[in-house]
Nucleic acid binder design. Structure first.
Ligand SMILES: [Mn+2]
Ligand SMILES: [Mn+2]
Ligand SMILES: [Mn+2]
Ligand SMILES: [Mn+2]
Lengths: 222, 222
DNA sequence: AATTAAATTTAAGTATGCTTAAAAATATAA
DNA sequence: TTATATTTTTAAGCATACTTAAATTTAATT
């Protein structure tokens, strides 16, 4: 299988993230900001990846992963989430610590080692954030049916299923406001103009920014 | 602290290895062969590292690590050996597997994570090969007093303390000839011309090549 | 629709880490 | 000691992954 460089892997992962979530697109500028590089560098990389058939690239259009590119993304994502699970369960690292370390380790982890970690953990389907772990042949266990909190309907009650942020601030905020995986919440109201959503959780009202609620996933309480 | 690239870390580690063991020097050609690069590339890298004050470099002389360079070497070596110990004890990887994986992971391991691993393992002083693990402030626990098997005196009996090879062949050979850490052996005779050493181990005579005995360390049985 | 703003692309340049080929220095052997 | 072989260095070049600055295209405003 094609082995990409660290820069390439991070770039492709960023495109994948943009293709999936609703919080981000796959325009070069968006990818550039995500990775902390200039727009020029992103365009440059896009041209190179297009030549390697990892993305489809038309000038001034959004970047799109090819099947080969998607395979690279899922491979790295699998290793990322296996490391997060492992570091959390075995070494007891916190939510943002596991992400920070996995962001590095994911790039120098052999398929062999990934399998060993997966076996050790009992081949888990989700990581500690609730994100699904792709299988070694690039399938995503999407028995999930969760939606982002941004999509929650007013009046309905849900359980939090995924916290897909990455930095310390995000997890600190979630923790101090009882936004934890498994906790129930009721969506109250959408404020379109101010891009806020009002929820009630643990008898407390919260007004959350859409950018935040895009990274929080919920599931109908069964 | 200065963060070196992967290529730089491997290069400096190779110099360190040459400075320590008796099996290798630190001439550019030797380092190049060790790393699988050309002599030209090694000279090139030597010039760059000299500018960064990580090595002392005089043309046509051996490469010598500065104190800063040695610090880099010990930092990477610490992470390498912590990973080897961890992967062996927790995931049950074999001797050559742990080396292969640690050779990669060592470069993308934060000081933070290294400490977590060390703590988890109870701050071990040696890795599964018997090699000492440098401390986080760059000390090597050399309470060891072991010598290479090449230095063993005829008639004396020793215990094997370290197996410092790295590839599968090496460990397969050691295993099938009972060359394991802790096993006793008696040095019989040195053959200078043919560069062989005769030993007796588990009632079996073995004739070993000097290149091999340079990577096997022994200690006077106490 | 025309103007302005923002995003994207191109161009030129830099640092890293390699390569091959040729030149220079050192080591080995006759 | 001189010739030969080996090692080391220099030189030129290439791919990756970035930068800044300028040109171009697209998007947003008036
Ligand atoms: Mn993560
Ligand atoms: Mn990463
Ligand atoms: Mn090793
Ligand atoms: Mn390495």
């Amino acid at each position: 299988m094609y082995k990409a460089s660290i820069a390439t892997e991070n770039f492709i992962k960023a495109i994948y993230k943009g293709e999936q979530g609703n919080s981000m697109d796959t325009k070069p500028g968006t990818i550039a900001k995500e990775l902390g590089i200039t727009n020029a560098a992103a365009t440059d990389m896009a041209r190179k990846l297009a030549m390697k058939k990892l993305i489809d690239y038309e000038k001034y259009k959004e970047l799109k992963l090819t099947p080969d590119g998607t395979k690279v993304a899922l491979d790295v994502l699998r290793k990322h989430r296996l490391w997060e699970t492992f570091l959390h369960q075995v070494l007891g690292l916190t939510m943002h610590e596991i992400h920070r370390e996995a962001e590095l380790l994911e790039h120098l982890t052999s398929d062999f080692l990934a399998e060993k970690i997966s076996d050790f953990l009992g081949n888990p389907e989700t990581d500690p954030h609730g994100d699904p772990i792709p299988t070694d042949d690039g399938e995503i266990p999407e028995t999930d049916h969760s939606i982002t909190l941004s999509m929650g309907e007013p009046g309905n009650t849900y359980k939090i299923s995924r916290l897909s942020g990455s930095d310390k601030e995000f997890f600190d905020f979630c923790h101090s406001n009882k936004l934890e995986i498994g906790t129930s919440l009721t969506v109250q109201k959408h404020y379109i103009k101010t891009r806020m959503i009002e929820i009630e959780i643990q008898h407390t009202k919260l007004l959350l920014n859409i950018d935040l609620t895009n990274t929080i996933y919920i599931k109908k309480a069964d």
